[in-house]
Design a protein around this nucleic acid. Sequence first.
DNA 1: GTGAAAGCGCTAACAC
DNA 2: GTGTTAGCGCTTTCAC
Lengths: 337, 337
Amino acid sequence: MTLGHGRRATIRDVALAAGVSISTASNALNGQGRTNAETRDRVKRVAEEIGFRPNALARGLLSRRSHSIGIITNDTYGRLTLPMTAGVSEALVDHGVSVFLCATNNDPRLARLHLEALLDKQVDGIIFTATRLDLAPPVDLSSLPMPVVYAFAEGPDTSVSFVPDDSQGARLAVEHLLSLGHRRIMHITGPEDFVAVRRRAAAYRACLDGRGDKGEVMFGPWGEDWGHEAVRRMLARPEPRPDAIFCGSDETARGVIDALRDHGLSVPADIAVVGFDNWHVVAAQTRPALTTVDMGLKELGRRAGLAMLDLTQGKPVPLGIKALGCSLVVRKSCGAV
Amino acid sequence: MTLGHGRRATIRDVALAAGVSISTASNALNGQGRTNAETRDRVKRVAEEIGFRPNALARGLLSRRSHSIGIITNDTYGRLTLPMTAGVSEALVDHGVSVFLCATNNDPRLARLHLEALLDKQVDGIIFTATRLDLAPPVDLSSLPMPVVYAFAEGPDTSVSFVPDDSQGARLAVEHLLSLGHRRIMHITGPEDFVAVRRRAAAYRACLDGRGDKGEVMFGPWGEDWGHEAVRRMLARPEPRPDAIFCGSDETARGVIDALRDHGLSVPADIAVVGFDNWHVVAAQTRPALTTVDMGLKELGRRAGLAMLDLTQGKPVPLGIKALGCSLVVRKSCGAV
DNA sequence: GTGAAAGCGCTAACAC
DNA sequence: GTGTTAGCGCTTTCAC
């Protein structure tokens, strides 16, 4: 019985069973101090036998490290949070650090409640993450007695933040289209008040500068409907029509692809389409399957987790906002001209 | 400064500042024992002023309750886990209980690692959840020193489990179609080795028994592609064709709807379609928007959380598998005959 | 009513 | 090398 029923074995039980004092048991188990090799082995064997595992609460009380951190997110339905949390956890689990997940639903009361619980539990640090980069935490995180890391969110300059490199991601998409020979590339994207949307649009324009025409950006609501609507507007206008469309999200791209088909245009033969997000349920199901930009959310979480680990160990971590590269996932929605 | 920098205030600081002993401070703050009203108020005021919050580690060490639980899931990309976790958390946060989220990715090594971390941290309980009902935990949970609750998973009879009522959900869908006058209702669903798939199919058949024809079930892989393929097969056969299709998932339903349109059939005019999942990104975006069954995952999580709360407080909780009702979300994909 | 003392499980000085 | 002692922050007898 490794895990055991009833009362858990304590170091006292180990010491008793091994016929040594508690501190010797502790020393032996932790490899601290000078311990006779034979004693150490015996203690370790006994500990194993009775299924002893040190009480992390007691340890934490003494060391002031709870080996747990909190993630505060505003995301309940989780296309962004879960891969990111998985990445964070992956980076930390080998170090015995567990992750409290706190979904605030953007409610300040809930956020405060969660934060207080985290503080009471002496978490070693807090990671804040959100569904959009330019969203402030629903509760003040600026003067906490532990490190704070922002993942998929932009904290103050004096903190550590990880975000996807939207500019580079957009460049990836546009340059892919350019390299295939497309020259009239349009950008159909989300609402202009999202900083990510503005960055992608700016990068798109910069890429086109000098090559192709100067492009055109259509801002609109997220979602498939907007893809349909944007295509309708686009086709209602005089020629020449674009030979490629870079979409600000996979959902929009799906709407665009469906709308193009409805209008008798073929993807990728008549017009190429690239998306953004690599949200599998959408991108893998468009017809044809969607070439799109992947923000590497899991890796982003992993990086945030590693940074947190360094911070909790007092190691220096570069402050400021670190933009992590995106990658292009090539499927079937683009072809050469 | 409510949250404070640097060293956290302890009950010692409160006692000192209030001019009482530590134990009096403790009594006053917790309303235990006999305490002079005036003293109590003073202590409380002082505690508030210096931003005292009791150290949950120290408390837990003494009370053997850490006020935290663990959720172990095999789900990384989270269409199921996150709403459920949100529900669990919602039920617990008001009681000061925080939730460790452990994504195992079905890897026994990872599961074991997470479980050990949870045990070390003296969690008050563990909730296991999965992407399908008939998935066994990747690590043995049967003899843990704390309660285990299964959410969207079926534990042993001697444990507490919450699952969606797939039979009732399927009945909801089929009876809706029957009430609209449909009589030739077909069922296009997922792989037969999923217990949920079998239950829905059985309920579908039972509903049709005596009314309409005896129906037909097409099992296949999950996903939109299967929806297309199933429709192709269905239309390749001799008349009469169904007047309604009940799909085992929203993704399949989306494939079905798209395929029907491709074949010149109109939804809902020519044929009605119902889905299962109410996965918003899919169901709200089909054209027309999908009428579908909602499993109430958040509520399921909430129920699991409440059960866990009772268990940790030693209250009796009915053992066995509790099936929670689904609801029908009516959108535009069904019409009367 | 209040405070001294013991102890939750563990680690770290410091004697021996 | 090993054991004794003190103490992390808190709650809880139990004298006074």
